[in-house]
Design a protein around this nucleic acid. Structure first.
Lengths: 202, 202
DNA sequence: GTCTATATTGTGATAGAC
DNA sequence: GTCTATCACAATATAGAC
């Protein structure tokens, strides 16, 4: 009860989020989460039966932050160029806020791909419709027509990859200088949109 | 000794490769590797002192398959277009053979970023030189000049991301149909090269 | 609800027989 | 070199006091 100030459930979830998203399922222990939450291991089991259930709550939440935005922009009634620019800008901005999420999702999805089925079916997104929509717009927009799936993956690749590969890029290309990498990401919003729009121009 | 038929060391390494690359460091146990190798746990410790050393052998090998190819093509004396086409084609072809490597490297590098420093310094690749080379070629090649780092990351993103995100893409976009995904990858070699070259054309 | 204590299993690693 | 047996410890999870 209490005045909804800091229910243990919320505290646990916040701690679990931090620990799981950084270390992954196998790299995280209930003890780590308990420490982060400032309480006892047993309490985690009291509120969330076991590690799996606690993890699932975090994973679904993280997945939900990534998938639906894409769909929303694609099916809006803006112009094609505005859709591309809008998506790239919003997506990269979001990822700057939660940069660990892409790699987290990719890794955990690889560990347990069956989970996708549940999530996809519950998301209500029909990839065929999205592809059809893109194809339609390419015809009308005076744009070089390419496979809509390739375009879709290109869009996602250019937005997401730098975050998933951050340690490599930051270490390898920017010599470990985080500020250069951040500046790179800010500039990237415009750069990626331009890149895509140029690539599909006739 | 023996006639180099199947030295235990090689058998262990092959087993460790399979297990580590799929499950990651924390997701793998010495028992799993021993089972895969068809021998006893203790033997793994006999040949490779501990789990860390065994893992390091696998990680360095995997990393070595990804990084140097890029450099080799970039510094060759082919034309700019040929470099792009050559790199994309060879890189995607390689990744089709070893599709789990990108995610493996990304995840493990996140877990222990310090490891990069050692590897980068020993690879002899100077990112500044590579960027300078790209910049020079853009001037000569009659190409729209963009930040060479952005171009480099775009190149890598478009090649690597589909492999790292395979379960998501295959499940989410291709409805779990692996054959459609494979066809998609084959087509992608040409598609990505065209996409990039169009994007940087004046 | 929240803690301590504990049961149980799995892990990396080593000792020692052969 | 290769095995069995075992140690020391960390993990998930539960029982039970308060």
């Amino acid at each position: 009860m209490s005045t909804t100030g800091k229910e243990p459930e919320a505290v646990i979830l916040e701690a679990a989020r931090k620990v799981f998203i950084i270390n992954g399922y196998e790299g995280s222990s209930m003890q780590m989460i308990a420490d982060e939450a400032g309480m006892n291991k047993a309490l985690l089991h009291y509120y969330f039966r076991n590690k799996d259930r606690l993890f699932e709550a975090i994973f679904i939440e993280a997945f939900g932050k990534m998938a639906p935005r894409l769909h929303q922009i694609i099916v809006s009634d803006r112009s094609f160029e505005e859709k591309i620019r809008g998506f790239v800008d919003e997506y990269i901005s979001t990822l700057i806020e939660i940069p660990e999420i892409p790699l987290f999702i990719m890794h955990e999805l690889r560990r347990n791909p069956e989970r996708i089925i549940k999530l996809v079916s519950s998301s209500g997104i029909d990839p065929r419709k999205v592809a059809g929509l893109i194809k339609e717009e390419m015809k009308q927009g005076g744009i070089r027509e390419i496979d809509p799936y390739q375009l879709l993956i290109n869009l996602l690749s250019l937005c997401i990859f730098p975050f998933a590969a951050r340690p490599i890029i930051e270490g390898f290309i920017f010599e470990g200088d985080a500020r250069r990498f951040d500046a790179f990401l800010q500039q990237r919003k415009k750069e990626v949109a331009d890149f895509i729009l140029n690539a599909i121009k006739k």
